[in-house]
């Protein structure tokens, strides 16, 4: 542990000892405090929150890893030139094309954030990458089938959700291409991967490692927020909403943000709230995959806080509007 720190070119013996010592210290301290920590779980609410927190992490980490694997593959093997050839040059066209690409990637939002970030790094227009970011978790076959299964009596919910989410992705993309500024996205995002003779597979592994560590921390942060919300938001929020359409829409939109359910599951939760009309539940389904606490944390990690602070409110407003319009068109009213 006390190897002399090399001052010049560092040989591969011992580097960055500080954080490693902190890590070991934290692990040791937690081990020593195991008894009191387990004791905390005696309180029902803490126990529920702890389980929900771990559940969100365990559920989301595989999807995050999948996203980083894709991200790493793009960094290593898909050159910016290829992407430029595939995507239309005009943002007005590139946005819907990128959104449509989301149709075929069955992933939850955790997978799409690292991929969208890598697309930006490879020179894809930001607006198009963001449209992909919003479309991939919301409109893919898995989510649409889940919605159909959850609403057996209302197959029109599938179409309404598809339209609402597609409009959200494309709408936000177009708005971003019109009003978005490059400096809102952290400069580090746009650095291309190294081209210094490092083998491609090493670039791949390095990108995956870097993305997992970077995004994983934020994912855990979001999972923590969602777990706290799950036990803190009182059930009474949902009582007595049935007769108040506007209030129901507002509460369901906010709930979608706070609960941060994965997009494969939210349709079942929405279906279970059968006291509410369909329209507020559609808002819940369109807002949830586009903006929630877990996703905002991931976006802040991937693109920077300045980005997340603007992107999240914009997405929220566009998603609620799109859901309402889609609902009126497809469902023909609040229902």
């Amino acid at each position: 542990m006390s190897a002399p720190r090399p001052t010049d070119t560092p040989p591969a013996t011992w580097r960055g000892s500080g954080s490693l010592v902190v890590l070991c210290g934290a692990l040791l301290a937690a081990t020593a405090l195991q008894g009191p920590l387990v004791g905390l779980l005696d309180v029902g609410v803490v126990r529920t929150a702890a389980t929900v927190f771990v559940a969100v992490c365990v559920q989301a980490l595989p999807f995050l890893v999948l996203g980083t694997l894709l991200s790493g593959a793009i960094a290593a093997w898909v050159s910016p030139a290829v992407l430029r050839r595939v995507l239309p040059t005009r943002p007005a066209l590139a946005v819907p094309v990128a959104g449509a690409a989301g149709l075929v990637l069955p992933g939850c939002e955790c997978a799409s954030v690292p991929v969208a970030r890598r697309l930006v790094a490879q020179g894809v227009p930001e607006a198009a990458a963001l449209a992909f970011l919003l479309a991939a978790p919301a409109i893919n076959p898995v989510v649409l089938v889940a919605t159909a299964v959850a609403f057996p009596d209302h197959p029109e919910m599938v179409l309404a959700r598809l339209l609402g989410s597609a409009a959200t992705a494309v709408g936000v993309g177009w708005l971003w291409s019109r009003f978005g500024r490059a400096e809102w996205i952290a400069a580090r995002v746009r650095r291309p991967p190294p081209d210094d003779g490092t083998p491609r597979w090493a670039v791949f592994a390095e990108t995956v490692r870097h993305d997992v560590v970077d995004a994983g921390g934020f994912l855990v942060l979001g999972g923590l927020a969602a777990a706290v919300m799950t036990v803190v938001v009182p059930q009474s929020w949902l009582d007595g909403l049935a007769g108040h359409l506007v209030l129901a829409v507002a509460v369901m939109a906010v709930l979608a943000v706070l609960l941060a359910l994965c997009s494969e599951a939210d349709a079942f939760v929405a279906a279970s709230l059968s006291a509410l009309p369909l329209l507020p539940r559609l808002v819940f389904l369109v807002v949830g995959p586009a903006v929630d606490v877990k996703l905002v944390a991931l976006q802040a990690g991937a693109f920077g806080r300045a980005f997340a602070a603007r992107f999240a409110p914009l997405t929220f407003v566009v998603a609620v509007t799109s859901a309402l319009v889609a609902g009126l068109l497809v469902l023909g009213g609040p229902r």
Partner: peptide
């Protein structure tokens, strides 16, 4: 050459310790 991959991670990465502790100890 090539700075696409920072060797260091920001403070948020420390949050990854939480699920590890939760699953190892509790």
């Amino acid at each position: 050459v090539g700075h696409g991959h920072g060797a260091r991670a920001g403070p948020a990465a420390w949050m990854l310790v939480l699920p590890v502790l939760a699953l190892l100890l509790v």
